[in-house]
Design a protein around this nucleic acid. Sequence first.
DNA 1: TTGTACGCGTTATCAT
DNA 2: ATGATAACGCGTACAA
Lengths: 336, 336
Amino acid sequence: MTIKDLSAQTGYSVGTVSRVLNDQPNVSEKAKKTILEAAAACGFQLNTNAQQLKQQRSNNILVLVKGSSNQLFSSLVEAIQSRVALTTYHLVVDYMDEDNDEVLRAVQLVREKKPLGILFPGGNRENFLAHFGRIDAPCVLVTSSGADLPFENLSSVCCDEDQAVMHTIERLIDLGHRKIAIIGGYRDRSDTARRRFQGCMAAFEAHGIPFAPEQDYANARFSYEAGYEAAEKLIARSDQYTAIFCMADVMAMGAIRALTDHGLRVPQDVSVVGFDGLSIGEYIVPRLTTVSQSVEQLAQRSVDLLRERIEGSHEAIHEVIPAELQWRESTRSIEK
Amino acid sequence: MTIKDLSAQTGYSVGTVSRVLNDQPNVSEKAKKTILEAAAACGFQLNTNAQQLKQQRSNNILVLVKGSSNQLFSSLVEAIQSRVALTTYHLVVDYMDEDNDEVLRAVQLVREKKPLGILFPGGNRENFLAHFGRIDAPCVLVTSSGADLPFENLSSVCCDEDQAVMHTIERLIDLGHRKIAIIGGYRDRSDTARRRFQGCMAAFEAHGIPFAPEQDYANARFSYEAGYEAAEKLIARSDQYTAIFCMADVMAMGAIRALTDHGLRVPQDVSVVGFDGLSIGEYIVPRLTTVSQSVEQLAQRSVDLLRERIEGSHEAIHEVIPAELQWRESTRSIEK
DNA sequence: TTGTACGCGTTATCAT
DNA sequence: ATGATAACGCGTACAA
């Protein structure tokens, strides 16, 4: 079933049929009615391939998801999907391996699929610096800042991570914690890890708290398991820690498990803080104290920013959404 | 950059270029080499739209995800993605609202996108009965059985839910539990809920344990929050329950939270069992006892089944993968 | 307001 | 082994 068939059926030419189906002006009410009815009757759908081939563009927004164990991104993709569903665009999700280059992949997909724009949850600074110049479609970096990247087609939306982390650590310090450990991402590979680490250091320095990275910092991927292992490493190194700040909720939950397995109670013996505000955090025992970034807002703003760029001719915008410290049950004061 | 440009560049005709790019016979080594090099040099990609328009088919496998709060499906989609990435096919994920008709949506997408096949995580029996006849592409129902559905283009892969649930309840009974409550899905809408419910009832009946659904069964959607609320309802109805079986891990984790908030300890006061085997279950305190279905196997078998149908001419296959009862810390014996 | 005809980039058929 | 050319289904400039 093509517009040709529809044309034959209704007696109108393919031109008129096409105009009606695309809701264009210069068609009589009568033609519109006749054709729309005939189309509805046989459940007609325009052929997307022909359409896009002709128009030299797709109607798709692409989201490039890197690594899958990070629960935050799953939620984010779903929220993005909901938001895109409200528009006339279609969301295409492309998953890729954690340790491949997302920008290189994007370069390929741009040529292959011609998306109107791309959303990058996460995203690595070096990769962008190296190859992003080859992409001319508007893009948005989500959960990571692109403010200091020199690309006018790259917007970003993220929360003020380093500030939020700094305040969180300060809160811990206020509550009497002095021996604080960090479980975080590999700083040589992850911007997120790097920025959150800066927040930690700022707090430690401002308050004169000693912190030796090689001792008090444990590397981990963004998964329960990695959090577990990192916490075990920390426990083996010292039994003095009264608090552990984790750069992701999944790490924090793994860490809590490890602490528990080693006979340490949370928060009585060790306070644990996460980052992300995953909904599971409100249900575990104890409820997880965390820096929450609103997945809804992240999704909403990033989609909106991208749409503006696609539809208008704005320049790159770097938006910061608030991060909210959710003080719950996995942390306590240790003032005497 | 099109094959025409490539043709001009290399001096060969578009026909030869196309043959080389599609790895077809009847091309000289020399032509192959020249053209491949030129293509690589400018990062050439065939235009998918033109290709598919010409070939009258896509290269896509579609997965239709319904409802998003169900963590299991997120993991499943990712596992499916990994599996499909190993093939020459491309995975297209389409998310849809929990309470829309997935089959109607599929009918539309088949016309619009012409996928080679469709994967349905979950899926509702009534919807299939009503409209699946209009779909002729091969499909696979994942986590839900299609064995009793009369469609020769519908395969399925799931675990033996009712058996697994029955054994789980029997185990609870063996351990001395007599007052057992169930938190599960709405049986009038969900096949999964219906089948798991049957497993429960079979166990209760076989052992002469009284069970009154209107009293001892609490409805819930597949989310933490719903599990929490359902558990509260149960607690309000009776304080006699020594065990709660939940039809999903997310419900179980919500339930554990509710019990804890009401001063009940898990498993000392109440044992809690989940279903799915989500990885978070191994990290919460207490570790969650659960009926685990392997997401890996589910993904692998469903993709393989679909491929067989796409590539060969097999008939529908209904495969059952093992479910494994993971007895962990959220349950205990109450023998005196 | 409507119709005609060309071209988007590719594959495939048929000559050569 | 290679080249010319006709589709695939659609949008659109141009003519009527």
